[in-house]
Design a protein around this nucleic acid. Structure first.
Length: 431
RNA sequence: GCUGAGGUAGCCUAGCCCGGCAAGGCGCCAGCCUUGAAAGCUGGUGGGGUUUCCCCACGGGAGUUCAAAUCUCCCCCUCAGCGCCA
């Protein structure tokens, strides 16, 4: 959530920033926040005065009784006060709630370097690596290849669990684990601490890490429980320090989350729907960092460099885009996507999302900076980035490394994790 | 799931039975002292406001009352023991 102080002191700055997101309702919401805040402050004064008088009378009654004197006159006035107070305090609470609800719905302030644009077609390419191969009509989709190898069964999974789920088999399962371990080792080398987080979160901490629309559209809820399946380990990693005071000397904190991810909304249409590119469930190794405010811009580049390094070592061509103002999510101030080259589709598709959430997440979670015994008002920044998601990461490897005979060569970087296997070959799993 | 104990400021704790301005310790900040530091001493150390003062804040909410940390009701969370369990 945006700092209320900034809204009060520099409303024109906030307004100009929100306007860049090209959603007029944000400006309406901002106006609502400001109006409710002004009214709230005025109402607080009235309520304060009533409470002051009541406290004064209460003390008078207590003193009169202690001195054995009469207190009836005071009591008479005191009895009349609560009626008026109830009314004013109700108004005070309503205004505060209205202000806070509207404030929480406002998106993060955009970083100045975010390009202005309408939608993902106006994201700006900031780097490419490797060269996409020429179009080849003989190339097969990853789903087709995996089924041919006996390493995935989508049809049965659709019957047991619905579209968006899958069974994986044999060496492909080992490849999945190898890819996770490969990414994790790379991060550990670079100072990250691996974290196995809880796969469910309560609603209260969850509201701190994401916006409310996600509860309707994205998250699976456990029936009759106040628990939601995580959509990414970013969420439990952000909630990890909710309500705490972090020592700036301990920052930056680099965490590498490993977990399955569950998402109801998997959206979109396009070629090769079948497979593991868009799924309700996948594994992900996630980078997460808590940093001092002045460090977050540099940390965003660090996380991005790590994500790029994963795909370089896998020798998968990719490009990096800066997500434009119209396509940026609520929580991020700036975001890069890494898009890997899918040769059959002849297209770059998103495989990594790398975000600087600045103080937006941390403030909602009640995280502050401070030394022991000396909490400060300043809020740390949080950042997150995919290292590798082993749905899309696997999909692109299969497409990129497919051979004419239907086998799939294993990237050199992953072979040490696979006991010397150099290819996925038909497993002979009976159908 | 059952039983019990708890939730008070950055941390730890008292107050609750018996309603009347939230006490104390640690940590932290400042000052004094000191060559310097420690110790010691003094003051300060939650949020807000129209800032000599006032209001709010004791897990959350409702109620009783002139007045609630304190009494009543509902809910949430944590810990311990028991039960169940890979």
């Amino acid at each position: 959530m945006i700092d209320l102080e900034i809204v009060r002191e520099h409303p024109e700055v906030v307004e100009a920033n929100l306007a860049r997101r090209r959603r007029p309702e944000y400006l309406t919401q901002l106006a609502a926040v400001r109006a409710a805040d002004v009214d709230w402050r005025a109402t607080v004064r009235v309520a304060d005065e009533l409470r002051r008088r009541r406290n004064e009378l209460s003390r008078g009654i207590a003193e009169a009784r202690a001195g054995g004197g009469p207190s009836e006159a005071l009591s008479a006035e005191a009895k009349a006060l609560p009626v008026r107070m109830r009314e004013v305090e109700l108004r005070e609470a309503e205004l505060r709630d209205a202000r806070d609800r509207a404030l929480r719905r406002l998106p993060n302030l955009l970083d100045e370097s975010v390009p202005y644009g309408r939608d993902d077609s106006e994201n700006v390419v900031v780097g490419t690596w490797g060269s996409p191969g020429p179009a080849d009509p003989g190339l097969r989709s990853h789903a087709e290849l995996l089924e041919g190898l006996g390493m995935a069964d989508f049809d049965r999974a659709h019957r047991t669990s619905g579209a968006g789920f899958y069974y994986l088999f044999g060496d492909f399962v080992l490849l999945d684990l190898a890819l996770q371990r490969f990414a994790l080792d790379l991060l550990v080398d670079r100072g990250f601490t691996p974290v196995a987080p809880p796969y469910v979160l309560r609603r209260a901490p969850y509201e701190g890490v994401t916006d409310l629309a996600d509860f309707e559209n994205v998250m699976y809820r456990i029936q009759d429980e106040d628990l939601y399946l995580i959509a990414t380990s970013e969420h439990p990693l952000a909630a990890l320090h909710a309500g705490e005071i972090l020592d700036p000397d301990d920052l930056p904190l680099r965490l590498a989350g490993v977990s399955p991810c569950f998402r109801k909304e998997i959206g979109g249409h396009g070629v090769d729907q079948k497979g593991i590119f868009r799924t309700h469930q996948f594994q992900k190794v996630e980078q997460f960092a808590y940093v001092r405010p002045e460090e977050s811009a540099a940390m965003l580049e660090e996380l991005r460099a790590n994500a790029e390094e994963v795909f370089r070592r896998l020798e998968v061509p990719y490009r990096v885009v800066t997500v434009c103002t119209g396509d940026l999510g609520t929580v991020a101030a700036k975001k890069y996507d890494v898009e890997a080259w899918f040769p059959r589709q002849q297209a770059y598709r998103e495989v990594v999302s790398c975000s600087n959430c600045t103080d937006y997440q941390a403030r909602r979670l009640g995280i502050r900076l401070g030394k022991a015994g000396r909490p400060e008002k300043q809020t740390p920044h949080t950042l997150n980035s995919t290292a590798v998601a082993t749905s899309r990461g696997l999909a692109v490897i299969v497409e990129q490394y497919q051979q004419p005979d239907g086998t799939v060569t294993i990237p050199t970087a992953l072979r040490p994790y696979l006991g010397g296997r150099d290819a996925l070959r038909p497993s002979g799993r009976p159908h």
